[in-house]
Design a protein around this nucleic acid. Sequence first.
DNA 1: GCATTAGTTATACATTGTGATAGTTATCCT
DNA 2: AGGATAACTATCACAATGTATAACTAATGC
Lengths: 104, 104
Amino acid sequence: MLGEFEYLLLSATAALQDEAYGATIRAAIEETTGAPCSIGALYTTLDRLEQKGMVKTRMGGATAQRGGRAKRMVRITPKGIEAATQFYRVMRRATIGLAWENPS
Amino acid sequence: MLGEFEYLLLSATAALQDEAYGATIRAAIEETTGAPCSIGALYTTLDRLEQKGMVKTRMGGATAQRGGRAKRMVRITPKGIEAATQFYRVMRRATIGLAWENPS
DNA sequence: GCATTAGTTATACATTGTGATAGTTATCCT
DNA sequence: AGGATAACTATCACAATGTATAACTAATGC
């Protein structure tokens, strides 16, 4: 099954659509968790997800701005969507009826 | 942070209240995930959660029935509730606005 | 050319997930 | 009584995931 950080990465990627790459994904994760996310952790997990066929990445062109190194753009695959859906469904189901089901 | 299996264990424990011990927790997890859950995995995870102070366990008396070995009863602690709440809140938040937010 | 900036890659280690196997304590049956 | 069976708990080894540090690359700006 998916891990929890893998899920965060997948969902951030899906939310960012065409703007998903290292830095933006990292920012998105930090915003939803409220905790710092190390960039190294992110890329290793990205590699693993790609190996499992849950995301596809391609190098974009270098942009004409200071530090404009080529970005590695990320896109979620159908398989990734499937896995994320399944993961969320299970978490949701596990929580039905519990005290923390409806957080403030 | 919590792992995903740890979360399943915590939520099953909370749901089962006074009837939470190895076998019942296992059955509950298998029901919500739809997948088999090995009993060894369960006890190791239980030990780790106890070390972290998220559950408390105590041995119950042996019951007078076939195979009536003493059960290790499990109860979630306030710290465990706190961690589970936090975990679910983050997962929920990560999912807002995505395609799989409202599964059928 | 050298400092600076935005970005990626490599690597090592810690934590969690998971199955196989063994051990304990009871009843059932002959 | 004593072996078969049943309902549990415990241990261990290994795989998969999580996470931080540090190094590398390619652009701009002075």
